[in-house]
Design a protein around this nucleic acid. Structure first.
Lengths: 235, 235, 235, 235
DNA sequence: GATGAATGAGAATTCATTCAT
DNA sequence: GATGAATGAATTCTCATTCAT
């Protein structure tokens, strides 16, 4: 039994334009305030829209969040393969992946924080789509590692998934101060350091056993040589 | 009109007992529902006090959360040094640290999730105390690495902070499925794998590629020397 | 993250007083506007309470409605048995029941309308409690009929439930104009009329079968007598 | 850029067809969800039109409800007179009326509930038209009773309106469990029972008690006369 | 020291209705 | 004649926090 009222004349826009406007506004408000403290009314105001309109495009606040995050992730994925195709060598490619990831954190810390605090913790259906996008995103690393294996640059016994987690986990952990707004992030230096740290653990080399054998032989030899050179007067 | 007024018997407890009761209740409710969805009223009910009482002991809901998390972290820190003191060798100690961390995640996934989603993202004063506890917690790893360096087991040029982030970051990243309630966590296997992955990158020695070459050269040299030293009688 | 604000000083009342105040306000607003058009804010204002307070006492708007209706029904049931105990004879008692029901409709048409439109249509758990009260209410009629049977005043083959429905159904149907606010309701006259209409259908008398038999015999006899009296000249 | 703009093919239909489609959709949604919980958008979707279109045909949601109910009632009235014309005798006709009403409840409980909860309670202009239809509907009973009076089958002092209310009220009251979706409805048996219950109260004849006496006297008289007429030869 | 009733602002969400296209 | 995007007010309900008792 709602009483109809006069309303202000409205600029009619295409569905797509409105949707984009809302998502942009939402992205900004979510990034600034976090999910819980973001108010639909504020998003609406920023998008130049009435609250009800948002619900024509998005089922709920949560849905809006997920659509925003999904769009962002899809943007991250765009041209990723092209970018990587132009780079040769396992090391260079790995560095590119690390660097690109760091770059994203550097440029959009608020969205990253949002992802870490809202999407990753969630176990519901919506979140799983974005988690899927995330899997596609990290799969570049997985692929790289496997290609490195095929090329003999990476040890075949490496646990690929664990190395993937190592790369993204290390980066995230290292960036938390920056994500929290404390300090800066030296993307280039960090990319180098991380690659240097990771590669030795995975790069192809003689198996440890062989190395140890040789070291042991060497040790024995050195002893003998030492004895020979110092104990000449013996006998 | 001699109806006895019902009056619920108030168990008079010591300040400390009440505080503990509230914190235990809070820990449980926070862990179950997450911070936002936890209601002070529910915590109060579970603790057997009324809502107002909580505010005698804790400034705010946020404060309560932080006190709960701090207490938990303090528990994690207790006896840590003793535990580690009994273990010898860089590798064994590192494995212990990794294993203990995984064990914690395994046993209290909900609290870990709470930490990751609520404490780490926060930048306020309260959180910083817990972040400090966290630093003390991860410092065991830092110390280990430095001792390893002093003992010549670890390369002196290793970025210790980065390795620390590598360890905790990798673990966290790898455990997210489990934290989300999907799948199980093989603590022992994972501890081994991770140590195997990390150590080669930090252990004392030339970088792998160079090492390989040198090892090979050494191998050839050793052979020659051995032949020379044993086959003196040859013509 | 609600910001605490200064609040006006509040008159502390007993739980019971507040509850009563809210229920009275609710009863009035529901009665005036109907369930859907009643606003919790209006009820709160009328009760001299803030909206949130209502939810300390009542789970939901629906719950409030049911509690109001239940209280009303419980009032209707109070002293019913005492009232009826003082009256002798099936007819008198029936008239009392009918009269009392009409009186209720006459005095509280809005609440009756509420019951008819909201409670009776509902099939949920809450409603069923009130429907149960309603059953207890109409059971007086059922009991009366059964006692009448035992006393030989009412035919034993009467479908008691149907007669109960007849009484309450007829009354309701007849009162709808009044309930809708059109016209008046002559409680006494209507009570008499209805009792006169109902009783003959249920009062003890020879079973219809016997009556019919006698009527048929009579019919045949009359024919014969008629023939006899007119056809005297026949041989 | 020669992508054909997708455009959903609008089935051009006659005014009447559209109106019918909307009303059918509305009837279904109203019946399923009740008035308040029915959404215009759902009705529109079911009718295959957009929300705005509905407002070309119907002033408001309420108007739509009334038009739907009116159409339904008009359907109920159609052929009613023909059906009744073919039936002879007060009893048979009454049974037909009762049976037909029960049949309707049996077949369309949701619409009946809608009528009882939305139309009958309403006091506004729109509702009054349907209440008028209802009067035309129940008038068949009134007419029947009056004809019965004229034929001497029904006592002339019977309050016709009250009997009408008795019939419809009893039926409704008795059917509420079924209307609520609990239990089944035995139309035929109930029709018989109700007619048996109603008729004695209105049928021509002395009140039962007196009738009984007279029947008994008649019985004795008949016996005497029979003996007299057949046993003429007796001495 | 505890109580717990009351606060009150705020949140998300719904939906009948309109009107420029 | 139909569209359907936009409206925008209204509504229920939640909950951290306070403070008179």
């Amino acid at each position: 039994m709602t009483i109809a009222t006069q309303r202000r004349v409205v600029t009619r826009q295409s569905r797509e334009q409105r949707e984009t406007a809302i998502m942009q506004a939402a992205q900004r408000v979510f990034a600034e305030k976090g999910y819980e403290d973001a108010a639909m009314s504020e998003i609406a105001a920023l998008a130049g829209v009435v609250e009800g309109t948002i619900y024509k495009y998005f089922e709920s606040k949560r849905d809006l969040l997920f659509r925003v995050m999904a769009a962002w992730y899809e943007g991250l994925l765009r041209d990723y393969d092209i970018g990587i195709a132009g780079i040769q060598g396992t090391r260079n490619r790995l560095r590119y992946i690390v660097w690109r990831h760091l770059r994203t954190i550097h440029d959009e810390p608020a969205l990253c924080r949002l992802f870490y605090s809202q999407i990753r913790t969630a176990g519901d259906y919506h979140a799983s789509y974005i988690q899927d996008l995330n899997r596609r995103y990290t799969r570049f690393t997985v692929r790289l590692l496997k290609e490195g294996m095929a090329a003999g640059e990476i040890r075949p016994d490496v646990n690929v998934a664990l190395v993937r987690d190592l790369i993204y986990g290390t980066i995230e952990h290292h960036c938390w101060n920056y994500l929290r707004g404390q300090g800066d992030l030296d993307v280039d230096r960090l990319a180098d350091e991380l690659v240097d740290l990771v590669l030795p653990g995975v790069a192809q080399g003689k198996p440890a056993a062989e190395l140890e054998t040789n070291v042991a032989r060497l040790g024995r030899l050195v002893e003998r040589l030492e004895r020979a050179s110092t104990g000449e007067g013996e006998a």
